[in-house]
């Protein structure tokens, strides 16, 4: 099967989605990230690996955190990073996305990090660029956010060691979530035997069971005996029409509180991709509680993005 992410030698050329990536490639990224965690803890948090490489952060959709983590990761690899907030630049003057990419390629770009509100944008750019240019999808529409999923896998492995005996629950707005889709593909590929999604019917994509997940509408049932709770952000900006009665109603049924978390295993970890809506999908007592690994996720996110860039640049 042709996978647009792999080159003719079966190596990773672009990172566009976790879907269809074989487990050895996912594990190589996680293993390489382990070494970068050490680098980020030194006084000099920098290695010379990508010295002289030009990496362009192409953000067609606003994002502060993801863009910043990619920027830090690239700088710690000694690459030169250029941030382009396209929403506020050429495209508002009428330039097409591919013309923007052509212009930047003419400036000898080596890698594009792409965030776009339209699903498939990173794929389109990857198909369009010269073969020596690598593309990383930093989130496209509802489709995929592979580096977020990989940093989540890294965090799970750090705390739970092995994927093969875990019960993982993804909670919240699955319908609009590119993070959830990428997490589901990565979890199933890495051998997690039971992936649950917990969501109201209105925030669940049609036929989600086909991805190999168990669907729960009752959070208390869904959280029972899980090892990992992956919370999602309630995406107010993506809500079309009235899918929910109110934020308060949502918190009552799907907000993660200490009481609900007590139904999971006693050593369950709680994760969230950020930014959090405290009091809507997660209670502050849980977000700041001892089972929360939300801030380690952010730290590991830098190492995982360094690993992805280093592997791509070397392939």
């Amino acid at each position: 099967m042709n996978n647009p992410q792999l080159n003719k030698n079966g190596k990773l050329q672009h990172l566009l989605t976790t879907e269809g990536l074989p487990a050895p490639i996912l594990l190589k990224i996680l293993d390489t990230a382990e070494s970068f965690v050490g680098v980020t803890q030194r006084d000099i948090k920098k290695v010379p690996l990508l010295r002289g490489k030009a990496i362009f952060n192409l953000f067609f959709e606003p994002s502060t955190r993801t863009r910043t983590t990619f920027e830090i990761a690239a700088k710690r690899l000694s690459a030169d990073v250029v941030n382009l907030n396209i929403a506020a630049s050429s495209q508002s003057k009428g330039e097409t996305m591919l013309d923007t990419v052509n212009n930047l390629s003419a400036m000898n770009a080596d890698m594009f990090i792409v965030r776009h509100s339209q699903s498939g944008a990173a794929h389109l750019i990857a198909r369009h660029v010269r073969p020596e240019i690598h593309v990383i999808n930093a989130g496209d529409g509802r489709h995929a956010h592979p580096t977020q999923a990989l940093l989540d896998m890294f965090t799970i492995r750090r705390y739970k060691k092995d994927f093969h005996n875990l019960r993982v629950a993804i909670v919240g707005d699955i319908l609009h979530s590119r993070v959830a889709r990428s997490q589901i593909h990565a979890l199933t590929t890495l051998g997690v035997p039971e992936v649950r999604v917990i969501s109201p019917k209105t925030l669940l994509p049609a036929k989600v069971e086909r991805l190999g997940v168990h669907v729960y509408h009752d959070m208390e049932q869904g959280l029972k005996d899980v090892d990992v709770v992956l919370m999602l952000r309630l995406q107010n900006e993506r809500m079309l029409g009235a899918r929910l009665p109110s934020a308060e109603e949502y918190f009552k049924h799907y907000g993660l509180t200490q009481e609900k978390l007590a139904l999971a295993k006693h050593d369950a970890i709680v994760m969230h991709p950020g930014p959090m809506n405290r009091g809507i999908e997660i209670d502050s007592a849980v977000a700041d509680g001892k089972q929360s690994v939300i801030l380690p996720q952010v730290t590991f996110g830098i190492a995982v993005r360094m690993a992805v860039m280093a592997i791509l640049a070397g392939n």
Partner: peptide, 18 residues
């Protein structure tokens, strides 16, 4: 992460943490 042949042969397949 410090090898001078990274641009020819890419990242070593098994990197261990220093």
């Amino acid at each position: 992460f410090y090898r001078d042949d990274f641009h020819e042969i890419g990242l070593h397949p098994q990197v261990k943490p220093s």
